[in-house]
Write a protein that binds this DNA or RNA. Sequence first.
DNA 1: TGTTAGCACTCGACCTATTAGAGTGCTAAC
DNA 2: GTTAGCACTCTAATAGGTCGAGTGCTAACA
Lengths: 352, 352
Amino acid sequence: MVPLTLDERKKKILLAIIKTYLETGEPVGSRTISKLEGLDLSSATIRNEMADLVDMGYILQPHTSAGRIPSDKGYRFYVDQLMAEKEKDIAERERETDEMKSLLVEKADKMERLLKQVAKSLSANTNYAAMISAPRYNMNRLKFIQLSRMEENRIVAVIVVEGNMIKNQIIDIDGPIDDETLLALNMLLNTTLNGMAIEDINLSIISKMKQQAGEQAGIISEVIDAVAESIRDDEDLEIYTSGANNIFKYPELADNQRASEIITAFEEKKQLTDLVYETLSHSDEKGIQVYIGEESPVENMKDCSVVTATYELDEGIHGTIGIIGPKRMDYDKVLSTIKKLTTELDTMFKKN
Amino acid sequence: MVPLTLDERKKKILLAIIKTYLETGEPVGSRTISKLEGLDLSSATIRNEMADLVDMGYILQPHTSAGRIPSDKGYRFYVDQLMAEKEKDIAERERETDEMKSLLVEKADKMERLLKQVAKSLSANTNYAAMISAPRYNMNRLKFIQLSRMEENRIVAVIVVEGNMIKNQIIDIDGPIDDETLLALNMLLNTTLNGMAIEDINLSIISKMKQQAGEQAGIISEVIDAVAESIRDDEDLEIYTSGANNIFKYPELADNQRASEIITAFEEKKQLTDLVYETLSHSDEKGIQVYIGEESPVENMKDCSVVTATYELDEGIHGTIGIIGPKRMDYDKVLSTIKKLTTELDTMFKKN
DNA sequence: TGTTAGCACTCGACCTATTAGAGTGCTAAC
DNA sequence: GTTAGCACTCTAATAGGTCGAGTGCTAACA
C-alpha cells in the first residue's frame, strides 16, 4: 500500500535526494543518502523509502539499476519548501547584490541600456539565460504629445508616456500645413489626450477630436489617425535577453533538438512575450513564480525551469524579468538573486 | 613533381568535387566523379588528379581511405569562379526575389520593422543565419532638431537625421525655461547644425554656439551638451538578426562547442559589429564579400562561411547585410539572394 | 513492527574484437 | 597518358564480455 502523504522522514529523504542531485547532476543512490548527516538510517531503509517516493511520483528511476532523480513533482515540492523558508534568510546574499546594484546604477541614463544591463548582469550572475521585458507600454498614461514640421509636408510626432518612454512617428501629409494649424493641433491633442491611459483611447474619442478640428479635419484626421495608430502600435513588447548561450553548459539542454528550440524561443521573442503576459496576469498572487518542466507556459521550454518575477516602474506599470535554466537549477540562488533584483529595480524607479 | 597551376581538367574535377560535396555533405570519392557527365575518365585517372589537388591544397583527405572534401582554398576557387559567372545568369532567380519584394514592402513603414523583416526573410529563404545592420548613423547628416518642453524643467529633444532615423533625449534642466528661450534655442540649433554631418560636430562648433547663446548660456549649454552627447552616443550600431537556430541544421556546426560560439556571437552583437565595420571598410572594392572559414574576421566564425554585402540608403550612408552558414553553403543561391536583396533595398530607398 | 544485513540480479558504461565496405595508392599493361 | 587490377588502410557498425553501481527481496533482529 502506497502512503498518501509525506511523513517527516520521507520529506527529509526527498530533500536530501534533490539537493544532492542539484549538486552532482547524477542519479543518486541509497548509499549516498544513508551516509549523509542528519538521518541515521541504513541504505536498505532508505531504499524502501525511495521505492515509496517513486510510487508517489516524487522521484524517477532512469532505469532499474540506477539511482533516482527528482521528477517535476519532486522539484515542485522542493521549490515550495524553499519559498516558504525564503522570508527568513534574505540577508545572506546581501553582498553579491550590492555588487549588482552598483553595476546597475552606473549607466542607467537610458531605459534601454538599463534593461540590457540588467539582463546581462542576471545571466552572468546565475549562469542561466535571462530576459527582461520593458515596462508594459499600453498600461501607461500619455504625458505629452508634440507635432513638429520637419519638411514641407512631413511631420514628426513625439509621444511621451509615463515612465518617459518615447515613441516617434513620421507622418506624410498631402498638402502643406501652416504653423497656426499645427499649433492648434498640438493644443487639441494635448488637452484631449494628456493623462489618458492608452487603452482608453477609442474610436469615439478620436472621432470627437476630428469633429472639434472643424474645417481642417481633412489634414487633421490624417494626423490623428497616424498618431493613434502609432500609439496603439506596440504589439511588440520589447524584450531584452542575455546569456542564451549558457544553456550549452547543461548537457541535458545542450543536445541539438532542445538547444535549437530554446534558442529559437529566445530569438523570435514571440514565446517570451507570451511568458511575460502569463507572468503579468498572475503577478498579483505572488512576487515570484517558478515553472518547472511541463508547468512551463512556453512550449519550447518544457525541459527547462523558468523563474519569473514582476517589477514595478510606477504605479500599475509592470515589467517582467525571467531566468531560464535546466530543471536542476540552483533555485536557492536564483530566487535570492531575482528577489533582490526586483526590489532593487522597484526602489530605483521610485526614486526617479 | 606537383603542378603549380590548375589546368582545365583539374578545374573541372575540382568543381565537380565541390559541387558534389555541397549537395551531399559527404566526402566524395574518385568513382563518384568518374561516373558524372562531362568528363569521361576512369576512376584511376581521377585518383591521380585528386592526389595532385591534395598536394596543391585545394582539397583535403579526412583520412587515408576516405574521399576528399574541399579545403578553404578550394571553396575560395569555387566562389571566385561563381562570382565571375554571376553577372550573366541573374535573371534566373527573379521569381523568388519578387516574392521577397512584396514581403518587404508590406510593412515598411518603419525602419526598424523593415530591417527585422529583411533579416527574417533572408534567413527563411536561405536556411542560414542572417543579420542586417541599421544604416551607419554617424555618417548621416542632421536634418532637424526640435526641443519641446515636457514638464516644468524637463525638455525632450527630437533629433532627425537623413534617412529619417530619429533619436530622442530627455533633458533635465536646473531652472525653468521660458517659451522665448526655447524658441531661440531651437532656431540656434537648427540654423547651426542642420545639414551637418554628425562627425563634423566638434567642440569648436559647440563652443561657438554657446557663445552665440549669450546671457542664457547657462541653461543653453546644458541643453547643447545633452544634445551633442545624444547625437554622438551611438556606439551601439543597431543590428538585427534572425535564424541563428538554423545552424543546428548543419551537423558540422551543431556540436556544443561551435554552436555555443556562434550563438554567443549573435547574442552579444559585438563581433557582428566588427563584421559590419570590416565589410563597410571594404565596400568600395566590390559589392559582395565572401569570407570562407579562416578568412573570417570574426573569431567565433572560423568554422563558417560569411557572406556580406552593403546596401545604400542614401548617398554615403551604408548598411550591411550578412549571411552566416556552414562552409559548404549553397553559395550560388546565397549570392543570388543577397545580390537581389541589396539592389532591392537600394532602389527602395532611392524611391523614398 | 520497523530496521537492517546479505545476496542475487539488472542494466548501463566501457572496452575489445571482428567485420564490411568505401576508397585509396601503386604497379603493370595498354 | 590512360586504365584495370589488387593489396592496403581506415572508419563505422556490430557483437561479446566485463565491471560496478544500485536495486529489490528475503530473512533475521531489536
